[in-house]
Amino acid sequence: MYKYIKQSISLLAVFTVLFAFANEAMAAKKSKTLKNTQKKGWVRCGVSQGLPGFSNADASGNWTGVDVDVCRAVAAAVLGDANKVKFTPLSAKERFTALTSGEIDILSRNTTWTLSRDADIGLTFVGVNFYDGQGFMVRKNSGIKSTNDFKSGLSACVNIGTTTELNMRDFFTSKGISYEPVVFEKADEVVAAYDSGRCDTYTTDKSGLAAQRTKMQNPDDHIVLPETISKEPLGPVVRQGDSVWEDIVRWSLNVMIEAEEYGIDSQNASAMKTSENPQIKRLVGAEGELGAALGLDNDWSYNIITQVGNYGESYKRNIADTGILPDRGPNNLWTKGGILYVAPAR
């Protein structure tokens, strides 16, 4: 008979424990992302499963890329050390769930800023770190020189869960071309299927095409068509409802761009502390209280610039020097013919 009492009591104990955990989880949820990050000692960042130039891990697990640099900048600003980032590789399908469920705190994964994403699913886009557009890749020997040569019956390989699928449909429908979409879950399978001849064209963001082209068996056999069929402003995303964290991520990115504008880079940042220009002094933390406004130390921006570098350094290191897109195109400063223009950090 004691058996039954024991059973009941142990059941009760199990439930008590369950509820205790649950309550703790509820309490943690109410605190801000910033507090959690400082307590944990690292920034939790969602990246791609491997896109050269944006977020790519080398053989020893070191992540590099312009998307990776955004997270490193936030780590430098919040924790004073750009290396204190934990990267979580995510598929296009998993990325938003990982962010809204709290598994990561920043999603920096070549993600297009659209109205429905910004409004619908509990996400907030904080800025643009790469201006991109969707293009098509075809085999050079196909004789296709532009999208005007496309005819009904083409098959197009594409990645699931992206704006690409929607743009592609808009594009083909408006041209009155019937096509066969072959949709894969991982980029590697898209490339393998296209490379084997299953698809006549491979479509994704042009930067992605340029990066994936380097992975083909014979990169020279493929060309990227000149047309751009969509606007793809790619940028970091945070959860809706934590405006302090949102500001920190936005301004970490903005500081990188503005530092380039003022000619501050990782090498000369410490010398710039004695500059005559008050805005330069503000950016390296020698003047003003910009950090305090964000709830950070005043050398937050100095840490970003010295540890990660300005936007131009990041672009050169990750995208230009790796041969993906040597020409900065729209991703140049507004003063140099591009469209990178950020609100002033002051």
């Binding site: 399908k93 429905s116 699931i160 869960g161 992206t162 929607l166 949709v183 894969f184 879950e185 991982k186």
Partner: peptide, 23 residues
């Protein structure tokens, strides 16, 4: 879903979930 056959997981729990965000 791994090999692009448009079954319910690829079409509905894949593309549709991504486009609507209604996980």
């Amino acid at each position: 879903a791994a090999i692009a056959y448009p079954d319910i997981v690829l079409v509905f729990a894949g593309t549709a979930m991504m486009q609507t965000g209604r996980a």
